[in-house]
Amino acid sequence: MIKRLLTLFLIALAFPAWAIDGNELLRKVDRNLEPESYEMYRKLINIEPNGSKKEFVLYSVKKGRDKVVALFLAPSSDKGRATLRLGDNMWLYIPSVGKPVRITSLQSVVGGVFNNADILRIDYATEYNAEKVDEEKDAYVLSLKARTGEVAYDRLKMWVDRKTVLPVMIEAYAASGLLIKTLHFRDIKDFGGGIRRPATVETDSPLYKGYKSVMLYSQLKKTSLADEVFTLNYLPRVEDLRK
C-alpha cells in the first residue's frame, strides 16, 4: 500500500501539470489584468505599413463578468460614439444617427487590427474554457476553446508568465484553424490600488500584413456603477460617468 502511494506521489511530482487547473489559472489571469468592475482610459493606435497612424481614445467601464461600455473621446470625428456589450450582445451608438444599432463581435468600430471583441473584451474565463495547460520554462501555455459559437475567436493559445500570472502573448484562431491575430502584452506598470498589469497590448495579423494596432492603458481603477449604466437608453449619457 505504502509502495503504491509512493509511486503515485512520484508520478505526481513527475507530471506537475496535472495539478494545474486551466480554468482557475484563466480566472487568475482575468483578475490580474483588471478588477471585475473598473473604469479606464485607452488609446488605440492603428499603424499602417508606411508608418502613418490613426489614434482613438476611449473611456471604458465594466461591471461584473460581461457588461462593458466604451465611449470615444477622440478623434473629434468619433467623439460621442459609444459601444455597449452585454454578454454576446453588442451595440454602437453614433450621436448623429441617434439610436443604438446592433453590431457584431467580428466587426471593428475603429478599423485596423482590433475588432469589437478586442475593444469590448469581457473576462476570458466567461468566453473560453481551458482545454489544456502546457508548461514552458517561464510560461504556462493555455489552450482555450470558445464556450459558444458567438465568441469572436474559436480558439486562443495564451502564454501566461509563471511569476506574474499575466498574459505575455495570445494567438487567436478561427474555427478553420486560421491564425487571425497575435496579441503581445508589454510594459508592466503599477496602476495603483493593487493593479499591476501590462500597459501596452500590440497586435498584428497575417490578414493585415504590415499593419499593427496598439492599445495603451491609463487610469485603470476599480469602480462601482449602477446596472442601468449598461443599457441602450444610457448610451447617449455615458459621458456623465467621467469625473
Binding site: 481614445v57 510594459d187 501596452t200 467621467r242
Partner: peptide, 19 residues
C-alpha cells in the same frame, strides 16, 4: 510613440465640437 496619459482627456464642464 506609445506614451499615453489620460489626464489630457479629463472632463470639462463646457465642451464644443463641430464639423
Amino acid at each position: 510613440e506609445f506614451a499615453f496619459d489620460a489626464a489630457e482627456f479629463s472632463r470639462k464642464p463646457l465642451e464644443f465640437g463641430s464639423y
